[in-house]
Design a protein around this nucleic acid. Structure first.
Length: 216
DNA sequence: CCCCAGGCGTCCA
DNA sequence: TGGACGCATGGG
């Protein structure tokens, strides 16, 4: 059974093994949002190329993206894959943001309200919305992703059919509501996932979570 | 050649 | 409500 002690133990093990990750890698909150959309099912190194292209073109802003020609956007973000979908998603998000008056104008909006607004944008799902809330807006929201699910399933800490919201609840109910802790916890899970919890390999040698086998 | 990546919307039962 | 499928590039 998952409880506070277990979650904190997992955190300590990861931190001990991998050190501080200091996420999200971006220069501005808006860049976090763009990265969150571009990294959907995509390797981060490919996202970096796309962001670099946007920067060099001077289009890494809500105004720039909202006003850009589709074909122009396609070329710039092509390295990140799914570029037609993602161009549309970036535009939808940017236009929404401009209507709101920018990220700064959202600082008094309640987190729950913001989450629903974000989820209503086509192309922004649970993980993207929560990443934006946590890493761009500093809201205490735990981000769940494929690695979170795979790692916890691999260690028999959850059942296979668990939903996104249920898994998120597990963290948010059992951890202190701490933005910095949430940021670092998710970053560490991604790093552990990349290095020790590959899809194919049933056994992950050297995993800092080795032996955490608890049960439902 | 293969598999994989910090998902999401659509379609169909 | 929930599972299959398409979307696409770059690295190992």
């Amino acid at each position: 059974m998952i409880d506070t002690d277990l979650l904190l133990d997992i955190y300590r093990r990861m931190e001990e093994a991998l050190g501080h990750q200091n996420w999200w890698p971006a220069e501005t909150p808006f860049e976090v949002c763009v990265g969150a959309i571009l990294t959907q099912n995509t390797n981060w190194s490919n996202v970096e190329r796309a962001i670099k292209n946007l920067k060099q073109a001077g289009l890494l802003s809500p105004e720039g993206i909202a006003a850009a020609e589709d074909e122009r956007l396609f070329e710039l973000i092509k390295p990140a894959g799914f570029y037609k979908q993602k161009a549309k998603r970036l535009k939808a998000f940017s236009k929404w943001l401009l209507e709101q008056g920018g990220l700064d104008a959202l600082k008094d909006t309640p987190t729950e309200t913001l989450r629903e607004m974000l989820l209503s944008i086509k192309g922004v799902g649970h993980e993207t919305a929560d990443s934006i809330l946590l890493y761009a807006l500093d809201r205490p929201v735990f981000v769940v992703d494929a690695y979170t699910y795979r790692i916890f399933l691999r260690h028999n800490l959850i059942y296979e059919e668990i939903t996104y919201n249920e898994l998120q609840e597990l963290f948010m109910r059992n951890l202190p509501e701490d933005v910095e802790l949430f940021k670092e916890y998710h970053a560490l899970l991604v790093e552990v996932g990349k290095r020790f919890c590959k899809k194919k390999k049933p056994l992950c040698g050297g995993c800092p979570l080795e032996g955490i086998n608890s049960l439902l």
